[in-house]
Amino acid sequence: MVQNVAGGKAKPVEEEVITEDNVFDKPDETMGFFPGQVLKDGWVALFLLIACVVMSYAIPAPLSEPANTAAVDYVPRPEWFFFFYEQMLMFFPGYTLIAFGAVVVPTVFIVLMFAVPWLDREPVYSPLKRPFAVIVGVLILIVVVLNMLLAVSRIINFPEG
């Protein structure tokens, strides 16, 4: 187990012989959560807050016309993080496939996501040593990104927006 180092400063360790038993006893180099990590977290938080403030005035939060169920010339578009899902809906026509693609596949995906720790039980951590998990992860990323790009191009190319 990692030993708590009182006072936040690591004592200089005498030259230690690393064996298979103690290699994971402590990591390479640590720092105290405070101030080291807290400071880094603080910088990121500050950056995000400033980004939010700048964006609030640069691109104000949108508010389009009041909702109208009787619209005929309005083009509904999802938020960007649903683009890939929305694009996938294009590929599933008809009753069976819509139910399959829009509901069943995402549900199965969510269940698989919960099961990830049990699907990949190999006690190795490095991405290089578990190619299968990494390939699956990268494939999912590629599918998501490609679908997002397809959705964006479809939205851009839609006549009269």
Binding site: Y74, V75, P76, E86, L89, M90, F92, P93, G94, I98, F158
Partner: peptide
């Protein structure tokens, strides 16, 4: 406009999802 469903003047299905 969402996913490109197409119908004829009678509302019958022509194409799309």
């Amino acid at each position: 406009p969402c996913h490109g469903g197409i119908y004829d003047i009678n509302g019958g299905y022509i194409g799309g999802p």
